[in-house]
């Protein structure tokens, strides 16, 4: 079935506002950046970020990517640190769903398009699903190279000595890198990128996925893309692999011992899955590989 044309969509939903909130020119700008980014995996592609009804720094980049990709046949899921119910996630889901005339869901398995802040869904995604991450700091060299132009030249030359040096210093002095979330990754063994502030548990699950991953930075106006089946590995010495987080207990709701869990209260001893949908699936006893 042929997808609807823009004119048909406009006529059908008959509103003065453009389809999916952004005007066509803005969407085109974002789409071009996405296509370019897919051709150069892991590299930052600039784009002119538009003002969104959510603040910069709150996911406006991810939202623009979503709005430029969404169609009326899509089923949209939005999560915030794994949680569908967060107010910010709900507001964005509502905006996307209503402006794009698309269905929304909290069930990962049903979604065709998932926008997420700071987590990768625990349920392995399929090739027909699209993952969009909110990216606050697109520049992985920001802490070691203060001049953005110099950082751009180093990316061009593939010279990441500064990042390796910083890692070496941490390993030598502390025995491990000091990053928590947002540990830099090498995409396609060539480009150093920020995977967005996902925990290390998730950084280790980015490689060789059957679906594309798009990362949008609205405040700093960059898009990064990882095409399907791309090698993504954390910046780490061969003999010092990245260690994922440790947990102090199984999930108090579903019992999982392999999901990414957070402690509800410091020292309280109660751990819960951060991915609420995956946790709910397990509770329902349905197949949800952990």
């Amino acid at each position: 079935m042929r997808p609807p044309t823009v004119a048909e969509l406009a006529a059908r939903h008959a509103r003065s506002a453009p389809y999916a909130y952004l005007d066509e020119r803005s969407k085109r700008e974002v789409r071009r950046a996405i296509l370019k980014a897919l051709c150069i995996p892991g590299r930052q592609v600039p784009f002119a970020s538009r003002e969104m009804p959510i603040a910069r720094g709150w996911g406006s980049g991810g939202l623009q990517v979503t709005l430029s990709c969404v169609g009326p046949g899509d089923v949209v899921k939005v999560i915030d640190q794994g949680d569908d119910g967060s107010f910010n996630a709900a507001a964005m889901r509502e905006l996307i769903g209503s402006s794009a005339d698309a269905r929304t869901t909290t069930r990962t398995a049903e979604a065709t398009l998932i926008q997420s802040r700071h987590r990768i869904p625990e349920l392995p995604l399929r090739a027909d699903q699209l993952l969009i991450l909110q990216l606050p700091h697109p520049e992985p060299l920001r802490r070691v190279v203060s001049d953005p132009r110099r950082a751009a030249r180093l990316h061009e030359a593939g010279d990441y000595t500064a990042a390796w040096l910083d890692l070496y210093d941490d390993e030598a002095r502390h025995g491990a890198p000091r990053s928590g979330a947002d540990h830099p990754v090498l995409v396609d063994r060539r480009a150093l990128a920020s995977p967005s502030p996902v925990p290390r548990h998730d950084v280790l699950r980015l490689s060789d996925r059957p679906h594309p991953i798009l990362l949008g930075a609205g405040r700093l106006e960059r898009i990064v893309a990882i095409p399907p089946h791309t090698d993504v590995r954390p910046l780490a010495f061969d003999d010092r692999p990245l260690r994922p987080e440790a947990f102090g207990g199984s999930c108090s709701r579903c019992g999982s011992e392999t999901s990414y869990r957070v402690e509800r209260e410091l020292g309280g001893g109660r751990w819960e899955c951060s991915d609420t949908d995956a946790c709910a699936e397990r509770r329902r006893g349905r197949e949800a590989p952990t």
Binding site: T161, W164, L165, Y168, D169, E171, A172, F237, D238, R240
Partner: peptide, 27 residues
């Protein structure tokens, strides 16, 4: 040189720039 990094890291820089990727031998 990088005054904020350890002396050892400063010494390691040229090895890392040359592509050494094993921590223990470099150290």
């Amino acid at each position: 040189l990088h005054p904020q990094l350890s002396a050892g890291a400063n010494v390691a820089e040229r090895l890392l720039a040359a592509g050494e990727r094993e921590f223990a031998p470099v150290r």
